[in-house]
Simulated assay, not measured.
Amino acid sequence: MGKFLVAGVTQIETIVRVDKIPVSFAPMTSAIDSIYTAMGGDAYNESLALKWLGDDVVFMSIVGRNQDLEMINPPDRKITLSTEYIIPQMNDTPTEVVLYDKERRQQIFEDIKDLRDNSYDMSMVPPIAENCDMVVLANANFCRPFVKVAQEHDKPVAVNIRYYDKEKEKYNADFLDSAKVLYFSDDTLTEDPYDFIDRMATTYGTEIIILGQGSEGLMLYDKSQNLRIHYNTVKTNEVVNTIGAGNALFACFLHYYMETGDSVNAIKNALLFASYKIGYMGTSNGFMTTDQLEQWRNLIWGIK
């Protein structure tokens, strides 16, 4: 069991299934079981996945002053996250609406409210960082001070950059410089993926880079193993909704990488974990158990 400090955004997510993107105008569209609303956010979803896999997780985030924290842990979910370090200090909780279609296209509308104007109370972070194995961060502004704390306590840092924008790379420099593990999505990538990984690795000296490529799979870079390889997706479930798959993949990778130190074993488990996740509605539903992961891994790649 690993011990993770996870810091990042919590938001209210509404997911809407549509026939196709772009959406054609209609005054009214009625479809049963096509709209789903729940708590979400990259770091929130990663915390849930790590907890599901048996890890000890301290989740640190900020939400709206009037946010009902009971929404963090709906009654029908088998696991719970502590809300002790989720601070209700913003004017409102960030909100996101995601439209998706059967071709796995997405259109996202994001409202981060006053997130950029808020900071986290760092006074309670150092003792928790001292007792964790890894610090997992989103690249939100309020997460920047966590980088320094992790370095002061000699803890490895993993960062989910989410959507990469070359024009904004300089604003992420502190995260990129400090991370042992980086996760990117290629949704907004405009350069060749191999060139992108080589540039990131050369510029920042990152040990592990994961580049999610949606239905095409992913690329894994491991500096210590001199490895840069593409993996196709695997199928364990019918696709219902791919939203949150990247968060699930990243969390599962970190769980097994910290447990074994083997990036290839970890990424294969992560591919399985994400492939099962997309068979469920909602970003925080549909997690495989460790026993299921072992069974599927042996079935697809053989017993190691």
Results as ranks from 00 to 15, higher is better:
42 D>Y: 07
286 G>K: 09
281 M>W: 06
301 W>M: 04
41 G>H: 02
212 G>Q: 05
219 M>H: 00
161 I>N: 04
213 Q>E: 05
21 I>V: 12
96 E>R: 10
164 Y>V: 00
49 A>M: 14
298 N>M: 11
22 P>C: 08
135 V>R: 04
281 M>I: 14
210 I>K: 04
144 R>F: 08
270 A>R: 12
304 K>M: 08
284 S>N: 08
18 V>L: 10
279 G>S: 12
117 D>E: 15
179 A>V: 09
221 Y>K: 00
159 V>N: 04
77 R>N: 10
193 P>W: 03
211 L>W: 04
117 D>Q: 12
239 V>Q: 07
260 T>E: 13
262 D>F: 03
273 F>D: 02
142 F>W: 07
42 D>E: 12
299 L>G: 00
297 R>E: 06
119 S>G: 13
88 P>N: 15
233 T>A: 13
147 V>F: 04
137 L>M: 02
147 V>P: 05
85 Y>N: 02
145 P>A: 11
137 L>Q: 08
284 S>K: 14
14 T>I: 08
271 L>T: 10
42 D>F: 08
290 T>K: 15
208 I>D: 01
133 D>H: 13
219 M>S: 01
69 L>C: 10
173 A>Y: 09
267 I>L: 04
256 Y>K: 05
183 Y>H: 13
169 E>G: 08
32 I>N: 13
